[in-house]
Design a protein around this nucleic acid. Structure first.
Length: 517
RNA sequence: GCACCGAUUGUAUAGUGGUUAGUAUCGAAGCCUGCCACGUUUCGGAGCCGGGUUCGAAUCCCGGUCGGUGCACCA
């Protein structure tokens, strides 16, 4: 199968099997970059989010939730009002849109010495022409990358948040009190953010409304360097591709242990390194394979306005190539410093190491695009196998992420006792919060294939012997093998499989030896 | 937003200036079926939107919309 075929096939299956629909609304003229999750997509994203929450909680993060709307001053303080504008200029001849700053930069203007308000004057003064067609350039206009809306009566303009992180920072005085002034403070937030992307593309990878999951550590400069949890992970190896390696044109890079990264001064703060590792664990936790993960350090010109150091966790997308899914930022004291400046609230400071000193806490941030992570977890899981010239489609998701990990089938509809027993088992599983599907339509083989295509890991089949011996077969998606287990252990076994407390391999097969003929 | 390419049942496709728009798959209801997309019966479902040419347009032309790819932006 060519990769082009594979791409369109995967996209087709995502929609066809009820994972992702869109762009939405499909029956009217859709808005680019907006999607619906269908029944299975929603189940799967719920599971993925639960998994992320679990990992955050294990690592002592607490979850908060903040509003999507906030007054403009918040975004002035955060720097977004200033930085989230693109200055664009349109060619009057060929209508190509150019960014004023990149245009001037390409002509070797010293960007440090130019104010954004001067872009238009310079272009006019120096008679700068369109680089594509030599045509005359029009006026420089602003393109706001933040989404605004109206609120209240009379309506006033508000900004929809372009990131969740800043809204979390506004809570610092409250959190500092909640955690009884113990630093560092670990919190995270999952929720929507909005950006006027110029051109949404590539399914869930670039949309105008998107979900983020951002973890924050409020920490003192001393704690960043003396961070006990780091010791537990110091020997782990991560695929770190440093800015220096990128700048020297090296496309090959080697995994390094985290201790080495610090020794070689690729990274300096143990707390920050620990956070990079957390990003890695989360991505592994939702089923992305290590060979498809790398960390890429931002080069100095790439860094966001708030970042001291920035690394992206990138995933090698099967459909779209290496793509950022998580940014890990050392934001320094930029954010709380700015909010202190704009709000004048002294509670944004904490006592420093010397007596009477007040300091602004440092912030380390880990920022995931949830939609992206969801999309990658899904796209990487499609497996196409050939079985006797018939293609077998398997959605090979981790059991914790799979929308519906279990299925219950009566081998046939006759006799009705098979159906009764199957439905009883199905109800038992549901009553025990084990996500299960029941199906009795068509042949048993058809049902196995139909359900493994949407990620069902284990199927329980009730056959005629089940009525006599109290056992059913469990079929494994991996290799289509089967074992026989007792019905009375079925709920317990399912729960253990779901929570990783046992594996299919460890299940004892009670299939009776074949009878002598 | 620009450039190029595309649009027929849910999916994949066939074909035609006048057709009951074909096929496979799919879905529904049966029959059959003792473990891997079996078979079988019946049924269901389609030419993106707007305008033009024409006696007649799903088919030709123009415009729009949406999608794909490339450029700029980005979690």
């Amino acid at each position: 199968m060519s990769s082009e075929d594979e791409t369109s096939k995967i996209l087709m299956l995502m929609a066809h099997r009820g994972f992702i629909y869109g762009p939405s609304p499909e029956i009217y003229n859709p808005i680019k970059g907006s999607f619906e999750l269908g029944p299975l997509g929603k189940l799967m994203k719920n599971n993925l989010e639960s998994k992320i929450r679990k990992i955050f909680r294990k690592n002592s993060f607490w979850e908060v939730q903040c509003p999507l709307i906030s007054p403009e001053i918040v975004w002035k303080a955060s720097g977004h009002v200033e930085r989230f504008f693109d200055y664009i200029v349109e060619c009057t001849k060929c209508n190509t849109i150019h960014r004023a700053d990149t245009l001037l930069e390409s002509l070797n203007y010293d960007m440090g010495g130019i104010k954004t308000s001067e872009f238009g004057d310079i272009i006019q003064r120096d008679n700068i022409r369109c680089p594509d067609c030599e045509g005359e350039l029009g006026k420089v206009t602003q393109q706001n990358l933040m989404v605004t809306s109206q609120l209240g009566f009379p309506a006033a303009e508000f900004i929809l948040r372009p990131e969740t992180a800043t809204t979390t920072y506004l809570l610092f005085p409250r959190l500092h009190q909640f955690f009884r002034t113990n630093m560092p403070i670990f919190v995270f937030q999952m929720g929507y953010a909005f950006r006027n992307e110029i051109s949404p593309r590539k399914m869930l990878l670039r949309t105008r409304e998107f979900e983020q999951c951002e973890g924050q550590i409020f920490i003192t400069p001393e704690q960043e360097l003396d961070f006990a949890p780091f010791e537990e992970i110091a020997k782990k190896q991560l695929p770190l591709w440093s800015a220096t390696e990128q700048e020297s044109g090296k496309t090959q890079f080697t995994s390094k242990t985290l201790a080495t990264a610090i020794e070689k001064k690729i990274l300096d703060k143990p707390a920050y390194v620990w956070l990079i590792n957390l990003a890695y664990e989360i991505v592994l936790g939702v089923g992305i394979l290590p060979e498809n993960i790398r960390f890429r350090q931002h080069k100095s010109d790439e860094k966001a306005h708030y970042a001291h150091d920035a690394w992206d966790l990138e995933i090698n997308s099967r459909l779209y190539g290496w793509t950022e899914v998580c940014g890990i930022h050392d934001r320094g004291d930029y954010d709380l410093g700015r909010h202190l400046e704009y709000s004048k609230k002294n509670k944004l400071q904490i006592p420093g190491s010397t007596k009477g000193e007040k300091i602004v806490p440092q912030i380390l941030e880990i920022a995931f695009g949830v939609g992206r992570l969801f999309f990658f977890a899904l796209e990487q899981s499609f497996r196409f196998e050939n079985e006797m010239d018939v293609e077998r489609v398997v959605l090979d998701l981790p059991v914790e992420i799979a929308p519906i990990p279990f299925a219950v089938f009566p081998l046939q509809k006759k006799p009705p006792e098979l159906v009764h027993l199957a439905k009883k088992i199905f109800n038992d599983l549901i009553d025990n919060d084990i996500s299960t599907i029941y199906d009795d339509a068509g042949s048993i083989g058809k049902r196995y294939r139909r359900t493994e295509e949407v990620g069902v890991r284990y199927a329980f089949t009730i056959d005629h012997d089940s009525l006599e011996d109290g056992m059913v077969t469990i079929r494994n998606i991996e290799d289509m093998s089967q074992k026989r287990i007792r019905i009375k252990n079925l709920v317990d076994t399912s729960r253990k499989l779901l929570h990783g407390q046992t594996t299919y391999k460890k299940i004892k097969d009670l299939t009776p030896p074949p009878k002598e003929v």
